[in-house]
């Protein structure tokens, strides 16, 4: 089986980084519009590295919400990362010591997780560092650009960049959905349920993601159990 290198990781991180540039750029603009100082917006991106949680977070800060509310909102919106961490912990190779787990955990995002878990080989720390480096830099850099220069880009360009991250998501989930009926079922189930929940304003996007994920992955595991002894595919 092919060994994953630092450069493999760096290469796989490029599309994630480019996707992040547009999203974090939008985040920078939004934060400053809400009255968050540009440097604080950048500090948030440097320390959080998560889109949904950060957007909810600046909303709470702008509204002067309590620290307890902030903690509860972040917990619920970002709870999916613990499911990902759990899943990822099954794919890490023998070199993945506690030290590497503590450092790389900081930058486990939806996209980093999706690309890492799409690997057939077990994951060494060097691959994960490579994979996370550019997305982290572009996430922070895009926030800085958005916070300081947001007003310069024409509206048509800002509008077009908004879909980049979703295009990337689709490129991650559609190819395996062609090959596996279980994955196809999971994708359709989660997408359908997500559309239903979007009609209820009381259900935030973070909670909706948690409900859809648990329901779809549970149903798929029951209805489409994978064959014994397969590590991946």
């Amino acid at each position: 089986m092919k060994k994953l290198s630092f450069l493999n990781g760096l290469n796989d991180g490029i599309p994630i980084a480019l996707g992040y540039l547009s999203v974090s750029f939008t985040f920078g603009i939004t934060a400053v519009n809400m009255g968050i100082p540009p440097l604080a917006a950048i500090l948030i991106s440097l320390t959080n590295v998560t889109s949904a949680g950060q957007v909810a977070g600046i909303g709470i800060i702008a509204a002067g919400g309590s620290l307890a509310e902030m903690a509860a909102a972040q917990f619920i919106i970002n709870l999916r990362y613990s499911l990902m961490g759990l899943s990822l912990s099954q794919k890490l190779d023998g070199k993945y010591t506690l030290f590497h787990r503590i450092t790389t955990a900081f930058c486990i995002t939806d996209e980093v997780f999706a690309v890492a878990s799409g690997q057939t080989a077990d994951i060494p720390p060097r691959y994960m560092y490579g994979l996370q480096l550019l997305p982290y830099l572009f996430w922070s850099g895009g926030t800085a650009i958005g916070a300081f220069l947001g007003s310069v880009l024409p509206d048509a360009v800002k509008s077009a960049l908004g879909i980049a991250i979703y295009g990337m998501f689709l490129a991650i989930i559609i190819p395996p959905a062609k090959k596996s009926r279980g994955v196809l079922f999971t994708v359709l189930f989660a997408a359908g349920l997500s559309c239903c929940l979007a009609n209820f304003p009381a259900i935030s996007s973070g909670i909706s993601i948690i409900i859809c994920t648990i329901a779809a992955a549970c149903a798929a595991a029951l209805l489409f159990p994978r064959k014994e002894a397969v590590h991946d595919e």
Partner: peptide
């Protein structure tokens, strides 16, 4: 979860569940 769960999970159902998690998350987010 990453630092505490150092052992390989044995339950077939949990492994299958975790295998499907990323596809469910990304579909629901998209």
């Amino acid at each position: 979860p990453l630092a505490v769960f150092r052992r390989k999970i044995q339950s077939k159902f949990v492994l299958d569940f975790l295998y499907y998690v990323p596809y469910a998350v990304l579909a629901a987010m998209t």
